[in-house]
Design a protein around this nucleic acid. Sequence first.
DNA 1: TGCTTGACCGACG
DNA 2: ACGTCGGCCAAGC
Length: 115
Amino acid sequence: MANTLPSRDRYARIWAMVRQIPRGRVASYGQVAAAAGFSRQPRLAAQALHHAPTELALPWHRVLRASGQLAFAAGSAGYRQQKARLEDEGVIFVGARVDLDACGWRPQRLAPFLD
DNA sequence: TGCTTGACCGACG
DNA sequence: ACGTCGGCCAAGC
């Protein structure tokens, strides 16, 4: 079972998922955790990003809260950097939150033609 | 060892 | 559309 893995391996799985979020799209911590095999553990994804080595150059800014708000305190350095990076990628903000309907990432689509 | 904290979430009121 | 609450799990002290 995945949840018997050491924390560094859990982090590695989460990092791998974060790497797959396309440019201009965003995913929530819970979504990333679930996609990595850790349902109902959004905080694990948060921890993983917090401890991520910078040399991995992960697109960490594409991960935010399920509500569309950024996880950092509004106005903090991290908040400003994340918002700037997202806007550079064309992500649309509606007030303090990202428009998830437009920019939310959907991990896998098994039958796109069923739309 | 035990308790608190955190880049969180979903259900409910 | 907010505020609260319980659940989660790894780090830090």
